[in-house]
Simulated scan of single mutants.
Amino acid sequence: MKKVYIVGTCDTKFAELDYARSATRQAGAEAVLVDVGTQSAHPGADIAAREVAANHPSGAAAVLSQADRGKAISAMAEALTIFLQECNDIGAVLGLGGTGNTALVTRAMRDLPVGVPKLMVSTVASGNVAPYVGPNDIAMMYSVVDIAGLNAISRKVIGNAAHAAAGMALNPPPLSADDRPGVGMTMFGVTTACVTQLRDMLGDAYELFVFHATGVGGQSMEKLVDSGLLQAVIDVTTTEVPDLLVGGVFPATEDRFGAIIRTRIPYVGSVGAVDMVNFGAKETVPAAFRDRRLHVHNAQVTLMRTTPEENRRIGAFIVERLNRMEGPVRFLLPLQGISAIDAPGQPFHDPAADEALFSTIRAGWKAAPNRQLIELDAHINSPEFAAALAANFHAITA
């Protein structure tokens, strides 16, 4: 039977953690109490804080000898991440705590694969939880009262969380009977025509997962790659890169493309919608950009055309990461336009800006047997380009 790992700081929250352990066992699941306290040891834990801290790359002393609490929490988070990665009997992870322990435990949860149950009971779970959750399947449960002693409310909340974690550990969903390879695809409104054609061309041979390229969309796709749940990627729309580099509202992280580099899965990509940086309603566009070429996509989204200089930065970012991919790679450049509004007669048509992007990728490209850079005299939403994407996908996945 896989176990519920209950994680918290026993030096300050032992009574609450012990209550969660008892409730989990009463629900029929095995429970392991993991102490991540950095101030003093507690004999009641199943896994002592020093045992967790020993997983830090610099040893337990790097965690437990820290005088600064913030540094100690960060170091313990790194140690816990490694500790949980090496456990092969996790049925669920249940964390309890305030701001410090929430940051600590969710840091480790974020590195676990999608599908491993993760539940965090937290004093900050009713606010903005994006920094704690990211593109992961972490369930955040508001503690209502502070986790500072047991009372009628905290017993109810903690007990419910323990029963939920036990239920997830005891009742894992059956594996899908669908054995088709999972393929991730990125899409934006201005590349929808390309992706729609591509989906039709790939037919029913693959299980297709389309991700809206809104920052967290790309992160979610790459999290599934890291979790082994996608076997290939067709990354049509890399628009999150401009938002990262220029300052838009849908940014990638610095780890964009990192999952492809790490896993070496087949990758077909392009430069869809990198002609734009995304902002909210027009009045929210930063003052520094209000004289730029803007296009109101809808009442809540305003697009800004990228300049040649910005496109050189974008191209350099992309090609540097493509050169680090050791799996099969095909990267396609649509020379007649990279979005629905980057075509003759459209508001973002700018051949000079596009050429700055293309020439930077050409110049930075490092030829290798596993990688090919392919240029087509076609628009990204044309049937010719969609067909080329499909053909190259089949070529590296056959």
Rank of each mutant, 00 (worst) to 15 (best):
Gln372Pro: 02
Gly228Pro: 09
Thr99Ser: 15
Arg321Tyr: 06
Ser143Thr: 08
Asn151Glu: 12
Phe279Thr: 07
Glu310Ser: 05
Thr306Phe: 06
His349Arg: 04
Arg256Tyr: 10
Leu170Asp: 12
Asp137Thr: 14
Leu303Ala: 05
Ala288Val: 14
Ala343Gly: 01
His297Gln: 10
Phe83Leu: 04
Met304Tyr: 09
Ala316His: 02
Ile341Thr: 01
Gly272Asn: 03
Arg256Leu: 07
Pro344Gln: 06
Ala161Val: 09
Glu384Gln: 10
Ser22Ile: 14
Leu245Phe: 04
Ala92His: 07
Val183Gly: 04
Asp243His: 02
Val285Cys: 04
Asn88Lys: 12
Asn278Pro: 00
Tyr19His: 12
Asp179His: 15
Ala288Tyr: 08
Asn151Cys: 14
Leu332Cys: 02
Asp291Glu: 12
Leu229Ile: 02
Gln300Asp: 15
Ala130Gly: 01
Ala103Val: 12
Ile147Lys: 09
Ala352Gln: 10
Asp18Ala: 14
Gly203Tyr: 06
Ala49Asp: 12
Glu309Trp: 01
Ser126Arg: 15
Glu78Gly: 11
Gly215His: 01
Gly37Cys: 06
Met276Thr: 12
Ser58Ile: 02
Ser122Phe: 13
Thr191Ile: 01
Gly95Gln: 08
Gly149Lys: 13
Val301Thr: 14
Arg107Trp: 12
Asp46Phe: 07
Ala148Asp: 13
Ile6Tyr: 00
Ser40Tyr: 12
Val121Ala: 10
Gly184Tyr: 01
Asp111Lys: 07
Thr81His: 13
Cys10Asp: 11
Leu33Phe: 12
Asp377Asn: 07
His42Leu: 13
Leu294Lys: 08
His394Arg: 10
His379Phe: 00
Leu96Gly: 08
Ile82Cys: 04
Pro57Trp: 02
Gly28Pro: 14
Gly167Leu: 11
Phe289Lys: 08
Val195Cys: 10
Leu202Val: 06
Lys3Glu: 12
Arg293Trp: 03
Ile153Gly: 10
Arg264Glu: 08
Ala54Met: 01
Arg264Ile: 00
Glu16His: 04
Val36Arg: 05
Thr191Ser: 09
Gly345Asn: 07
Ile90Gln: 11
Thr239Ile: 06
Val34His: 00
Phe211Arg: 00
Ile265Leu: 09
Val319Leu: 05
Met221His: 11
Asp226Asn: 12
Ala41Lys: 15
Thr81Asp: 10
Val121Gly: 09
Gln336Pro: 02
Val114Trp: 14
Met187Lys: 08
Phe83Ser: 01
Leu229His: 08
Pro242Thr: 11
Leu64Ser: 11
Cys194Lys: 03
Asp146Phe: 13
Arg199Asp: 13
Glu240Cys: 05
Val249Pro: 01
Arg25Gln: 11
